[in-house]
Design a protein around this nucleic acid. Sequence first.
DNA 1: CGAGAGTTTGAATGTGCTCAAGGAACGTGG
DNA 2: CCACGTTCCTTGAGCACATTCAAACTCTCG
Lengths: 248, 248
Amino acid sequence: MTGLRTGERTAEIVIRRLSAFRRISPQAAANLEDAVRGRVIVASAGQEVVCEGDPADRIRIVLSGWLARYKALEDGRRQIVAFILPGETCDPYVYLTRQMDHSIASLTPTSFAEIERERFEALVASDRSLAEAFRCEMLSNVAIQREWTLNLGRRDAFERVAHLLCELIERLRRIGLWDGNSCALPVTQLDLADATGLSVVHVNRTLQELRSSGLIVLRDRLLTVHDLEALKEAALFSPDYLNYLPLA
Amino acid sequence: MTGLRTGERTAEIVIRRLSAFRRISPQAAANLEDAVRGRVIVASAGQEVVCEGDPADRIRIVLSGWLARYKALEDGRRQIVAFILPGETCDPYVYLTRQMDHSIASLTPTSFAEIERERFEALVASDRSLAEAFRCEMLSNVAIQREWTLNLGRRDAFERVAHLLCELIERLRRIGLWDGNSCALPVTQLDLADATGLSVVHVNRTLQELRSSGLIVLRDRLLTVHDLEALKEAALFSPDYLNYLPLA
DNA sequence: CGAGAGTTTGAATGTGCTCAAGGAACGTGG
DNA sequence: CCACGTTCCTTGAGCACATTCAAACTCTCG
């Protein structure tokens, strides 16, 4: 696998990600890779990549790095409504609406492909299982959003943070960024607070609680979990909502 | 408009609803009406129409009545993640997943059409703007879900309940169930609690607060709002996320 | 060395919850 | 026709989870 050019390596993670939903044929993969190579944007950490109100004229596929989708209230309160991970399509079919109703910011150095409406439509028209994979991704996005609604509405802080970690681990596992025990967690406690609807202070205390119960180790943006089943149990986590195909 | 048979009247609201997203041609409307008439299910209030774990083999379009989409935790905690109103499609394309990750219950006496996968795919294949309307409905669903995430995460009880009411009013207005000042609100305070992530007791107190600030009148399941702009302001509500076409 | 971002701690406060009980409205059966 | 059960709404009191405010600490980077 050494010696691959960047384009190939990054397309690889997109295929891997879509394969969580449908088997992607080599031909479809090649078409997708072409489209992905068309226009690649690079952003450093902390950039506003998409702003609320921007025209929704293209879709974006993340090649590397983490992004956060968020909505803000006039008085500054902010809610991260989703994390967007490598390989994920930001908003399949979003060009059917007039403008973005939320913003997207990079949490880490990031690269992503931009695909215009016409090109994307041609792509999904050319291959049925690719089209289905993108639609599954939409279904998965809304299922995750529903689970977050449950998380914010009915889980307490401890369960809530634990659940978020379980979800991220499961999603990272799909793209090979979870090694069985640990993964990079490149977000600040403020990000976690905005994602869980808690205050920074309380996230800090909740993480300490998770640490002292032996459920997680979190240091220098590296998350380690020795007993994932125990964490899932504490979080009342069940991965069904992610809509993934069974792992091989 | 008198003398229409039930099938025609109910198809009418489905067309009206989809027209919030795209102009539907008479031909497409006729096709849709055929599909809707194929299999109509009637349910009384309080029925579990779809259970978590059920096969996701068909889509459902509500003809009349209110439904609630909800998720439950093992210990009984329950979160309504969406209200489903007349004319709305429960889950466009849901058959691409294996099984339902949530349940749906009727809040009122309800009727809805069931459409099998093949029939639905033929329907959207036959008309481009109909297909786009259904995709817009998906985008709208996920946008609403994101807004609920913000609502539960960052608005306090008062704003939260006010925001939910604003959203429902806006959606009901689209299908002619808001007369400019009032609408039926056929849900219990327990339902509102499960939707807003609050306790019943606190919803009761919050409604009293909304009443005594003069923002709402709510009696016998009839909601009246004399100054909608004031309610929207209190809720920090802006309807952009609903993705509707401008009203004629 | 200083600046800045992120994390941690303590103390006081408050929003919303739980528990408990009573009241209103409605339908059913004796 | 009244008694009763059920569901929903309302109220009070005490408590708890999470917030806010403030400050100190750590680490990195220039």
